[in-house]
């Protein structure tokens, strides 16, 4: 098996996903997609849920994809992947296909946490051998920044506005990585666009398991998050360093921590550069920040207990 560095110089693999798409400057999505596709050695079939990635990579009259690619609807990427994978399995069994083909689905958080959860859950439970990647930018960015199940507590969105009666989203985000893990699938991991090697290795591991695999990748959105377009990687990095978005994997039910910050940064470091949290820094909202810090602390402690020092 060649290492990821070798694959990075493999021209055909490099061009699975090409430039000249219309994703915004600083968007984490293409970084996520490239890193994952560049790390997979075998031929891939890509399934894409509705979202920024789908819209901006298939602009009239172009496409950024050099691999077999299918978009069906918003809610069913995992179901379509199930069909493709089952058909390949049948053809392989009859000897009509001998190649190993990797089925990779990409969905945003809207298409994964919310409308696509039913299809994802069904596919995980049925045990299809496919990789589902959620590029998680924590809101419906394609339709103009509406809150999703992934939007964090107290973040501002157009449908969780801030004002006299509201401080942004009043609910906590759901922990999708954990929900997926509860399906007893062989490989589940949380990654970030900031840590490319970690992400590439995880993509590699994910496609090598015989069953469903899932990657939840923190993916920046300068438009929705309100940070400078040239700071995406740094911002995502802060998510990791503050333990807001820890990097970990769950292999056959065993939790492993992939990165232990030398010194955990306080959550304000993650909140401050993003305009969606700007209202938290107005006087009177200190308690909200304390509440967020407490949530992060609790989640982190829980994660450490689960990992029991496995790294």
């Amino acid at each position: 098996m060649p290492n990821t560095k070798e694959l990075a110089h493999h021209e055909e693999i490099q061009k699975r996903f090409t430039g000249a798409h219309a994703l915004c400057a600083g968007c984490g999505t293409p970084v996520c997609v490239r890193t994952i596709l560049n790390a997979i050695e075998e031929p891939v079939v890509v399934i894409n849920a509705t979202g920024c990635l789908e819209v901006a990579t298939t602009r009239y009259p172009t496409t950024a994809w050099n691999v077999p690619w299918i978009h069906v609807a918003f809610e069913n990427a995992a179901a379509v992947a199930s069909g493709i994978e089952a058909a390949y399995r049948a053809l392989r069994r009859r000897g009509k296909i001998t190649k190993e083909i990797r089925v990779v689905a990409f969905g945003g958080d809207g298409g994964t946490y919310d409308i696509g959860l039913q299809a994802l859950s069904g596919a995980l439970e049925r045990g299809h051998r496919f990789l589902y990647v959620c590029y998680d930018n924590e809101a419906y960015m394609n339709t103009g920044n509406q809150r999703s199940g992934a939007t964090p507590f107290a973040a501002q969105t157009t449908t969780a506005p801030t004002g006299e009666k509201s401080f942004g989203k009043p609910q906590r985000r759901k922990d999708l990585t954990e929900i997926v893990a509860a399906h007893h699938v062989p490989y589940v991991a949380q990654a970030s666009i900031s840590d490319w090697y970690d992400l590439a290795v995880k993509a590699r591991k994910a496609v090598s398991v015989d069953g469903p695999a899932f990657l939840n990748v923190l993916s920046t959105c300068p438009r929705g998050w309100g940070h400078p377009t040239d700071q995406s990687i740094k911002i995502a990095r802060l998510g990791v360093e503050t333990c807001y978005w820890p990097l970990y994997e769950i292999i056959d039910g065993q939790w492993h921590l992939n990165y232990m910050p030398e010194e955990r940064l306080p959550i304000v470091e993650w909140l401050r550069p993003q305009r969606r949290f700007a209202h938290l820094f107005e006087p009177g909202n200190e308690a909200l920040i304390a509440q967020i810090q407490q949530q992060v602390d609790e989640d982190w402690e829980k994660l450490l207990r689960r990992c029991e020092g496995r790294a």
Binding site: A20, A25, G26, S194, W196, T229, D230, S232, I233
Partner: peptide, 12 residues
């Protein structure tokens, strides 16, 4: 002409 100035390379 292709560079959008996102700084992904700079930060990576």
């Amino acid at each position: 002409r292709r560079c959008k100035g996102c700084g992904v390379c700079v930060q990576s």
